[in-house]
Simulated assay, not measured.
Amino acid sequence: MHATVNWRDGLVFEAKSGSGHAVTMDGNKTEAASPMELVLMAAGGCSSVDVVSILEKARQQVTGVQCEVKGERADTVPAVFTHVHLHFIVTGTDVAEKHVERAVALSADKYCSVAKMLEASVKVTHSYVIENEGENA
């Protein structure tokens, strides 16, 4: 796996993955997400892939998964993350709590490479809520 990062101007960079996908990063957060924001997004994306995959294999009627990721950073330089919390909002019909709890736990404990990597130096926590579709209709 590899990537290339090219400076555009100011503190704006374009990163390109070995698979050919590009993303813009901005140290000032005016044109794009900052690299640290991308770390949070990567953790949420990686864990969300796991949760959706596990729930689909469990034949749960999931229609939506949202992962809200919050990161706390150190007050000193380098301003590394000290705590990252991933909160999953799972929407669907008759989604069993035991399956969501299991999916989130498996992602946290076994599958999410990004969160596991962060876990070496960052406190990573998880939570979830299930919203049954049609309850508010």
Rank of each mutant, 00 (worst) to 15 (best):
Y128L: 01
V84Y: 00
H126W: 14
V23P: 04
V69A: 05
K116Y: 06
A137N: 09
L38T: 10
I130R: 09
E37G: 01
D26K: 10
E31S: 12
H126Q: 13
E131C: 04
A115P: 02
K70N: 11
S47A: 15
D9P: 00
H85V: 00
V49L: 14
S127R: 04
M1W: 10
V90N: 03
E135H: 13
A15F: 06
S48P: 00
K57R: 13
A74K: 11
Y128D: 03
V69I: 15
R102D: 05
V84G: 00
V5E: 04
M117V: 06
S48F: 01
E14M: 07
K123D: 11
D75A: 11
R73S: 00
T24R: 14
T4W: 08
E14W: 06
V104R: 06
D50W: 01
D109T: 11
G10K: 07
K16M: 11
K29A: 14
A58T: 05
S107H: 07
A15Y: 06
P35Y: 04
A58C: 06
R59K: 15
V62C: 08
Y128E: 04
T93P: 01
R102S: 10
G92Y: 04
Y111R: 08
V90E: 06
K70T: 12
E131S: 07
V104I: 07
G27C: 06
H126V: 09
D94K: 15
H126K: 14
A103K: 08
S17Q: 09
V77N: 12
V49S: 10
T93F: 05
P78C: 04
I89D: 11
V51T: 10
E135R: 13
I54K: 04
L40A: 02
S17L: 03
V122D: 01
L86F: 02
E31N: 13
V49A: 13
F13V: 03
K16N: 08
G45K: 05
S53G: 09
K57M: 06
W7H: 12
V69S: 02
P78G: 04
E68V: 12
E31I: 02
D50Q: 03
A79I: 00
I89G: 04
H83D: 07
A115E: 10
N136T: 10
A120K: 15
A105L: 08
N132D: 10
